[in-house]
Design a binder for these strands. Structure first.
Lengths: 206, 206, 206, 206
DNA sequence: TATGAATGAGAGTTCATTCAT
DNA sequence: TATGAATGAACTCTCATTCAT
């Protein structure tokens, strides 16, 4: 499944007008992607939705893939922003509170644009470099790993590597299912609590 | 994301030769899907790979979507077959053994054609009936729910509905991650053991 | 000026109908090329002129360049056919008659489709591997070289390599000019005679 | 091959700065044409190479064709300048020396920017006024004709019209071949000598 | 019934050119 | 006057699908 297109954006918009155009294009991409899916999201439709000519779109993005990649990166960055705040505080907390806080932050991050997140996850992995979105989740939960290693002796599982693999993907699976099936539940504290329970009971003996 | 095509296969192949043709087409579809990805899997390439003319392909499948749907159904049925055996035995076992057995069966089922499972999950744009694959996993783990309800009083979680949602998607997330990232581990007993631990510790109070 | 497209035809037409289609496409290419020039000869226009859908065109030719290359090859082959007859006889003749015969054959070959030859020469050299047409002329006059080497001692020029370079391109320049400016003169015996004179007076000392 | 664009430059640059801009644009055109070929030489690329905005380019040239035409005219004028010097002296010389001098001048003129000359000849699709380059060569060797008519009685060929046609295109063919295939040879005296031989032996009996 | 040649809507993309700033 | 963002007609090419043989 090679996919060798260059996805680096074509030029940085310098003037304010150009920046607005790029924003409009990315917004339109998100909308059309969510409404129509990847295949039906043609560059011409996106341009029209953005109120911009097709030529303008290609001034800033060398191809469709680059466009979606840029959108994914923007989305990722937004989610990451919501998480970094929390991360700094982890060290200062005891395990249960740390886990709980992380999971709440993760759910909040997924609650921002769940429909877009879904379409990026679901339809876009055919694109090259687009593990980014997946990486997003992964990178984030890599944090769990570091935290856990710090407190290794107090933890139950023998193989911490395996434990992290399990937890990362368990939490991710639950989160994505919530995004897909009942986005409303993302903000519900009970979900966060329950996930925290799942994680903690697995990690800590008794 | 409307998807209004008729995906019912065109005709039931009556003769043995016709059945063989259909099998060949589905096999070719699986191969090309795995090797090239969904977008590059054109109907003409699939027909050639199947050693069949494009016209014959369309004799049995009204469109590409029906073709992929049929493949997904076949794949699903194969996985289901591996699970039903186990299901009958659940009642006769105590919870830990029941869970363990189910999870092992699930992992074995995913180990059969992990690459195909992956491409069906990841790349196939949401086909009309193609939540089927997702449903597959879901339907299967629906069993967990029935089992759990039977033993509700001995379980820790208050909201069993929520608990099942969590476990289903946690296990699914882990399983798919294993399929994607280290298919080899699917047969490894340690993974099954660890997942069982995760589930049991969540379900049962110390 | 790289031009890295694969110009090998896509598939050999097997059925008679397909062979007719390919012929029609090549004929249309020649017509449109002559009437409109290379840039205006779009694949859609060529297909329409051939009375064939654009899809059919691309069944047999992977891209526009391959199409023109195939036409050039066909044209070349036709010209070559007209020359090989003459070539066999060279050995049996004395120098003046040999030269005269060759030049007459060359002029006759250029007289077949001068307008097409012109457009291929003029507009097409931007295409990769399309030195073919130029090669055509070159290859042909390579014969002169071999002939001359056989009779080297009776010839005036000291540096035969240089002499051949001169004559080849002199004759080519004259021929193409005749094609471009007065295609009618190609069949005129006086032109052949005069070119023969030019060549012979240069080659043979009084 | 209609070609109905207006190729007259848009305005004569009056100020020195404007003249410099025009020069820069023409220089850039020549560079890009040589480096990338006609098709890849887009107006935007040329403007950037010239260090000028695309808007400025269109201030001086109404369209791409006018741009290339202007470049061709400049190139032609430069070559012509190198030749006129020689022309004045023709009358004062005897035939062999006159021919030799002309041919040397012609080769020198082609040696100045052979790569540009080649690309203008080869790749530039027939622009409205772009027989100019061809005319260049032609116009120049028109001189030969006048000279020859002056000395008609001492010459061998009966039909001088035809003889001139032959010689003009023979010399042109050789010159262009040298430009294309071994630009180095243009300065080599042996080539000039040999061409002179070819011409003289054709023109003069014994 | 099987074949594969033929179809054509529509996709992505380019680039000469315009025009508001 | 100079800028460069914006334009959009037009291009090449794909691929699911049809239908004459």
């Amino acid at each position: 499944m090679p996919n060798d297109l260059d996805t680096t954006p074509r030029k940085q918009p310098a003037q304010a007008r150009a920046r607005a155009t790029v924003q409009a294009i990315l917004d339109a991409t998100a909308q059309v992607l969510v409404e129509q899916g990847y295949d039906r999201a043609t560059t011409n439709v996106i341009a029209r939705r953005a109120g911009v000519s097709i030529g303008s779109l290609y001034q800033y993005f060398p191809n469709k893939e680059a466009l979606v990649t840029a959108l994914a990166e923007r989305h990722m960055a937004e989610m990451a922003t919501m998480l970094v705040r929390e991360v700094g505080l982890l060290r200062t907390r005891r395990l249960p509170e740390a886990i709980r806080a992380l999971i709440e932050a993760l759910l909040r991050a997924h609650a921002v644009e769940p429909a877009l997140h879904r379409v990026l996850i679901e339809q876009v992995p055919r694109l090259s470099g687009l593990e980014q979105v997946a990486n997003m989740d992964r990178m984030f939960v890599e944090l769990i790993r570091r935290e856990l290693e710090q407190r290794e002796e107090r933890l139950r599982p023998g193989d911490l590597e395996l434990a992290v693999f399990l937890l990362v993907h368990a939490v991710q699976g639950i989160t994505h299912a919530a995004v897909f099936e009942c986005p409303g539940a993302l903000g519900d504290g009970r979900l966060a609590q329950e996930i925290t329970d799942l994680v903690l009971r697995y990690l800590v003996a008794e």
